[in-house]
Design a protein around this nucleic acid. Structure first.
Lengths: 216, 216
DNA sequence: GCAAAAGTGTTAGGAGTACACCCATGC
DNA sequence: GCATGGGTGTACTCCTAACACTTTTGC
């Protein structure tokens, strides 16, 4: 490879994570406000340019940390975006991931080196974003809906266990549709992903539900 | 983004396609022999570095063309490879795709600007390849097995239609296992991907099989 | 006793898998 | 008539989806 061929110069890799949460039954995505050009003062997904001395996964985690203060987020790959003009500065490829956290349990840094704000936006009211991030979010939402049916991504909401009705509400919020209680229960138990505990809910003005946990 | 931050410099994107074929019931992958460093005289998958003035898909097609003379290959995305040291020259991310062609119907250029040879290798006897291409092929084979069950990638073998036993043999070669004739037929017909024609096989010393075509 | 939410079982349809026999052809 | 390979049907299992009644609790 002729490193100095001008056609190879000035290329980079964006590592971008669509971080979701469910807040009072509503699916939201975390957006940060950019301090710098390009797209100064635009809202954007968390992410940025990969360094040339770090693995892809490390760069992604670093970007999440730098722009939100969050560490150790479990993510899944979503898609690659490679239009030549997707960045106005230079040629950037984007590798897109999804993650999900419990917004009520974490503190998001609102003012960082590169961001002046951070907010949770309902996915039905996302503003015009920097770069092609609107398109990236759309694909990320599709990936999210597929992944929660195959993995235990949602365990972040229930570090101390959950009742099946609670879990079902989170699924319904993300999938955007009602599920049948009996079928949901059957499905979850058949996936071999959760186990019942001896505990029950407390202090509720109704029948107490049994508490489950995700398997380790 | 500070374009001149040294940590952003010298990065590039490999666009790599594992091109498969089935030849006399054996799954093979196309490898080319490199003329230049790094990995001079090593066998490698078809692919190379993306230019900074072309879309990802265009770069992938250009690389296939430059290294094999092939045009218009339909491909599917496989995986991203992002270890920081996967190239000894500079930091390169690899975007990996799969494709499949009928080796008997195309002429592969054996001597190009960057390659001194091109051969079909059985996937059970692949040599030590350039870069991390051995790992990329392994993942590509997984992707291939998934995709042929969901898409009409195999239509390249049958431009003039096919009988179900013929099609089944190709599936068996790729999946590496025998399939039940009755179940295969049911599955194929239920996928709504093929349609029967009025024709039959000719000149065979046995019962004539009906000829099918892939839907447009 | 009543409102609120949890828990439970059955049935029907579709997909996958396993398996055995008859049919058309060329020799 | 026999060897070769094509064509077909049935039964079982599993998963999905639709659907209604009973139980526990707090007030």
């Amino acid at each position: 490879m002729e490193v100095n061929n001008p056609r190879y110069l000035h290329q980079g890799i964006h590592v971008i994570t669509s971080i979701f949460t469910v807040d009072k039954g509503v699916l939201k995505v975390l957006l940060v406000k950019r301090k710098n050009n390009p797209y100064k003062d635009f809202w954007a997904l968390t992410g940025g340019a990969l360094y040339n001395d770090e693995d892809l996964e490390d760069g992604r985690n670093r970007e999440i940390y730098e722009k939100t203060g969050l560490k150790k987020i479990e993510v899944k790959f979503s898609k690659v975006f490679g239009k030549k003009d997707r960045s106005p500065v230079m040629r950037m490829i984007a590798i897109s991931y999804i993650g999900i956290i419990d917004a009520s349990k974490v503190e998001i840094a609102k003012d960082t080196l590169k961001t002046s704000n951070a907010e949770w936006f309902e996915i039905t009211s996302i503003p015009k974003l920097a770069y092609d991030h609107n398109e990236i979010i759309e694909e990320a939402i599709k990936t999210l809906k597929e992944e929660i049916l195959k993995t235990d991504l949602l365990k972040v909401f229930f570090p101390n266990g959950f009742t099946l009705p609670e879990l079902q509400k989170v699924y319904e919020s993300i999938l955007g549709k009602k599920l049948d209680r009996r079928n949901f229960r059957k499905k979850m138990l058949s996936l071999d992903m959760i186990i019942p505990t001896e505990e029950e809910e407390k202090f509720v003005g109704k029948k107490k539900a049994k508490i489950y946990k995700f398997k380790v």
